[in-house]
Nucleic acid binder design. Structure first.
Length: 466
RNA sequence: GGCGCGUUAGUCUAGCGGUUCAGGACGCCGGCCUCUCACGCCGGAAACACGGGUUCGAUUCCCGUACGCGCUACCA
């Protein structure tokens, strides 16, 4: 039997990391078992569902490199089938019409509560003869009251509940529209879903749905309920997948991170997509909820920034650089050199793009603290000499630059830092940059000399002050 | 309230009755490396919710308590 799983988001907002994780576990389960991963857009909440959300969710899945095997099923297209099935169920005696209105229902529940009973539909309409005229009615599923439902959950293990805890839930509203619990069962059956992997919040629904599968003549799928993620709903907007993409996270890092959120494979931390497919197993899924920790995801991002092929990182960085409108940004040798210089120093692509500024633009000012610490009359004199020596350099290569600077430091009886920092400040405006010689090479000879000259000129007045 | 599920350091987790007074990772603290910042390396602080059982022996099995989450709709 081919395993068929599905991810069934409601298109009412962005795909957040919790949803992405549910999708991922389904996708991994399918890929690991050579099964099929399907999508179902649960858009039956007409008021809140939007086309944009659907597009955004699909885009987020694609960005995370999850592919699906059939065109997504749009649940609203199944409307007729759901309605018809509900009525057929009434004919077969598996469901019944309920003419109670909201007010009598509320009254009933209130009475039950007052008597200390659990609120539950009392089936007053079960045997009621069909009233004359065309009174509106809902359709209720006739849930067995005897016995227990036991489900062997793939994550939780055996879970059970007594049938008398379950209510006769409404499957078709009085306005003629099917409800969630009914539509889910109908479509999972229709799609031939063999394994339902979803959030823990549906665990209790499972017992209700179980009976519906049987009444509809479907084989019940296996279930696996994933623990929820703590601390995500509060910041739902910022936790959307594309929000992290826009914050400069690589999809490899996000995927790796959410995979580890509630799932483990021994002590392993780093997983490529292929490794995840090979090693994923629902047995490794934790039973308890996990909290989202952006620091750890950032650490993973840094890991991928410094281990992915430099061409790959360059490709990802390019559009971010372009956004900043740095002049002369291109997929060239300079970009590659930048990636090499910056990848171990950046946590995100945004960090990297910020730090890359020096390669394209001269400093727009000089960090006062750094200037205070490193620039004085003597260093300005040294800078003038170094500038002159650099100008005379025949070959502006790594060895040549380094020996020139080191030699200068030695002659002046200074350590490298005392020489390097003032140069760094002139070139970048800051006391922080990649290694000085790399920085100089990236900037290029002419521009280095230009910036040194500018620096000496602009910093001189400040030195006169003290 | 009822029902369901859960509970190892700040966080993610390993553990599947006995050299584990609990291992890895993020974060944190200290050190080394060093032209800055990082990276890297070395070291450190930090956890089995509580109470009963079962057992020769429980983090591990069972039962309670506490706490947390979920469901309890003509929401999905």
């Amino acid at each position: 039997m081919t395993i068929r799983v599905r991810f069934a988001p409601s298109p009412t907002g962005h795909l957040h990391l919790g949803g992405a994780r549910t999708a991922l576990f389904n996708w991994l389960y399918a890929r690991h078992h050579s099964g099929q991963f399907l999508l179902r857009i649960e858009d039956t909440d007409r008021a809140r569902s939007t086309e944009e959300s659907t597009a955004g969710i699909l885009e987020a899945l694609q960005w995370l490199h999850m592919d699906w095997d059939e065109p997504p099923l749009i649940q609203s297209t199944r409307y007729q089938a759901h309605v018809q099935a509900a009525h057929e169920l009434v004919e077969k005696g598996g469901a019944y019409r309920c003419y109670c209105d909201a007010q009598t229902l509320e009254q009933m529940r209130e009475d039950q509560r007052r008597r200390g009973e659990k609120p539950r539909y009392d089936r007053r309409c079960l045997d009621r003869p069909r009233p004359a005229g065309d009174q509106p009615f809902a359709i209720r599923f006739l849930t067995p009251r005897e016995g227990v439902v036991e489900i062997e959950d793939l994550v939780k293990g055996p879970v059970q509940v007594h049938n008398d805890e379950l209510d006769d839930l409404i499957i078709l509203r009085s306005d003629g529209t099917p409800t969630y619990n009914f539509s889910v069962v109908m479509d999972d059956g229709f799609m031939g879903i063999t394994h339902v992997i979803r959030g823990d919040d549906h665990l209790n629904n499972t017992f209700r749905q179980y009976h519906i599968y049987r009444a509809l003549g479907f084989e019940t799928p296996r279930f696996g309920h994933l623990p929820l993620i703590k601390g995500l709903s509060k910041r739902l907007g910022s936790a959307s997948v594309q929000a992290y993409r826009d914050k400069g996270y690589l999809w490899e890092a996000v995927l790796n991170y959410i995979a580890r959120l509630g799932w483990a494979h021994g002590d392993d931390e780093i997983f490529s997509q292929e490794e995840l497919i090979a090693k994923f197993d629902l047995k490794g899924v934790a039973k308890s909820p996990a909290a989202f920790d952006e620091d750890k995801m950032t650490w993973l991002n840094q890991h991928y920034l410094k281990t992915l092929p430099e061409e790959t990182v360059a490709e990802r960085l390019l559009p971010v650089l372009a956004q900043r409108e740095y002049p002369g940004v291109a997929q060239d040798g300079r970009l590659l050199a930048l990636v090499r210089a910056l990848r171990e120093r950046a946590r995100t692509l945004i960090d990297m793009a910020d730090s890359a500024r020096f390669a394209y633009l001269p400093p727009e000012g000089y960090d006062p603290k750094a200037t205070q610490k490193w620039i004085d009359k003597k260093t300005l004199e040294n800078l003038a000499v170094i500038t002159k020596n650099l100008e005379e350099l025949e070959v502006f290569g790594p060895q040549e630059i380094e020996s020139l600077i080191r030699q200068h430091a030695e002659e002046q009886g200074m350590n490298l830092g005392q020489v390097a920092q003032p140069i760094r400040i002139c070139l970048t405006g800051s006391a922080v940059s990649p290694p000085l010689f790399d920085t100089m090479l990236i900037i290029g000879k002419e521009e280095v000399i230009q910036r040194l000259g500018d620096g000496i000129r602009k910093l001189a007045p400040a030195v006169e002050q003290h």
